[in-house]
C-alpha cells in the first residue's frame, strides 16, 4: 500500500499544498459569496492573474518539459502547439480539432525525425 500512495510525507504535502489551498477558496465562496458582485473589478483582476498563472504553467511544461516530452526537439514542441492553436482558430474554437492537429504534428514530426 505504501508503494501505491507513496510516503506519508508526500500525502501530507498533497493535503497542505494541494487540497487546502483550493478548498479554502471554495468554502470562502460558500460563506462570504452572497455579497460579491460577479462583474466587480476585483474579480476581473483575479481572473486575469489566474489566467496568467495557468499560462505560465503551460509555458513551463513546454519550455522545461517533463519525462518523455523532453525527447522532442524544442522547435517541434512549439510547432505542434502553434499548429494546434491555428487549427483551433480555423475551426471556430474547436478544442478537439486543435488538440488533434497539435498531436498529429508532434507524432508526424517525431516519426519523420526517426
Amino acid at each position: 500500500m505504501s508503494e501505491f500512495f507513496g510516503s506519508p510525507h508526500a500525502l501530507l504535502i498533497l493535503v497542505l499544498a494541494g487540497f487546502l489551498p483550493n478548498e479554502i477558496w471554495r468554502m470562502a465562496g460558500l460563506w462570504f459569496g452572497a455579497g460579491v458582485d460577479e462583474g466587480s473589478e476585483v474579480l476581473i483582476w483575479v481572473r486575469a492573474v489566474a489566467t496568467a498563472i495557468l499560462a505560465g504553467v503551460i509555458a513551463q511544461i513546454l519550455v522545461q518539459p517533463p519525462g518523455a516530452l523532453a525527447g522532442v526537439p524544442d522547435w517541434l514542441r512549439y510547432g505542434a502547439v502553434a499548429a494546434g492553436l491555428a487549427m483551433f482558430m480555423l475551426t471556430r474554437r474547436s478544442i478537439f480539432a486543435g488538440v488533434v492537429a497539435g498531436e498529429v504534428i508532434l507524432l508526424a514530426g517525431k516519426w519523420w525525425l526517426g
Binding site: I24, A50, L54
Partner: peptide, 8 residues
Amino acid sequence: VSAIRLFP
C-alpha cells in the same frame, strides 16, 4: 494564488 479563481 491560482485557486482564487474558484471563488468567483
